[in-house]
Design a protein around this nucleic acid. Sequence first.
DNA 1: ACTGGGCCTTGATCTAAGTCAATTTTTTTG
DNA 2: CAAAAAAATTGACTTAGATCAAGGCCCAGT
Lengths: 250, 250
Amino acid sequence: MNITSPVLTPASVSCNECPIKHRAVCAYCEKSEMAKLEGMKSYKTYPAGSPIIFAGDQMKFVGSVVTGVARLSQTMEDGRRQMVGLLLPSDFVGRPGRTYATFDVEATTDVTLCRFDRKPFEKLLTDIPHLRERMLEMALDELDAAREWMLLLGRKTAREKIASLLTIIARRQNVVQTSGKHAVVHFDINLTREAMSEYLGLTLETVSRQINALKKDNIISLEKKRRVVVKDFARLLAETGDDEDGGFLD
Amino acid sequence: MNITSPVLTPASVSCNECPIKHRAVCAYCEKSEMAKLEGMKSYKTYPAGSPIIFAGDQMKFVGSVVTGVARLSQTMEDGRRQMVGLLLPSDFVGRPGRTYATFDVEATTDVTLCRFDRKPFEKLLTDIPHLRERMLEMALDELDAAREWMLLLGRKTAREKIASLLTIIARRQNVVQTSGKHAVVHFDINLTREAMSEYLGLTLETVSRQINALKKDNIISLEKKRRVVVKDFARLLAETGDDEDGGFLD
DNA sequence: ACTGGGCCTTGATCTAAGTCAATTTTTTTG
DNA sequence: CAAAAAAATTGACTTAGATCAAGGCCCAGT
């Protein structure tokens, strides 16, 4: 579902041709280091909607998302759910140093993971500085993202939340050119209204209403419910409540 | 203000006697490594209420909170504010590898930082594996905390938010013995109602009402507005909406 | 082509938390 | 110690978003 290129199968991909090699944990590794990882890795594909890890489970492996979209979420006893991570290709799954999972991970679209057994991976993490270096960088980036997300959850209105989500998804898919701020831009949101509501701390009805409000205000339009056309990206940005262009610094 | 022991002054403390040496970034360093850090460090004390760093500022230093409480927050153009980090002793301030600050940092109580110039510190981070190792661990812990916080912001009711905040503060001050779950426990919240509201994504009026509701329901009582007595910790925990005892795993 | 089941939309109503506006309590300081 | 400032409470009222409840749409499979 929504995987454009053919699904990768276990033994078929060498790290050389890996689509995420420049952004994943292994990004800084040298040839000899890659060889070690290559020897340990295995691919696994999870169908859309299926669980990858349950909170509380023992965590036997860690790995990188190669294709597809996965989500990290938390569930309360009475069923309230909050997404706490949106995992796209190159994002890391699992926390080295922890035996049990703290959050649920599930496949939103079909997801292929490049997996490593946790214990041996942890060993490599101490042996290969490049790996730890990249891991730290990724953790700090995620922390920054989590903090932006906290502002969204704590202070933004429903409309601002939707505009922010669309902006985030557009940015992560690299469909926005830094130049053409006013450009028309289109992309798929690989999330149901319900998944969006779990991301944003809203109900799915509110998500639906706000998306349609943005449509009525002529800021976006929809092709096929999950495909969004942003008529004027700058206007969408203005609706997020964030200052300026997002203030990209360093 | 609320600093129990005498305020540290710049040259007076050797790393040997540092109160946070077992939990700070430097926790895993060996003697020779500590010597390098010792040569670079300097203390600075910020009075309660004063800014430590503004978002957008150039980040000249990084460091650890030695005493006091600081907060990391984000402000929207129209003044809405959300706290995105609560920094207690041993917590790290600043993000290595970033030239400009993304968030505001300000002193909530008087705060003493153990500071390092950013550039030389980054150099040490690549030279001393122990430093990077601890840094990664701390970043991952903060990420987990941020994700719990996201659940709080996105899905919890005002009452659950207050109960959660009190629980978090009590835990961080180590006043809760894992054994005596039903024990009476008292501690200070070094935060104004407004600061609490910024933490929780509420207004200060709602914070006040909910604290008084918990008081009326005989779950807590107050001495001096900022000092809380939890009558029965297990009951407070039940009010957080989290499952069980917080499910401490590994 | 028909039908069943996910999704999604839309309307009516409800409510938790926000807003506005005084007080009261506590802390600071001259 | 009194006065001023800061923080906290409390009440009355409003509102954004939740909840409850139909329907509609769009494909996947027979």
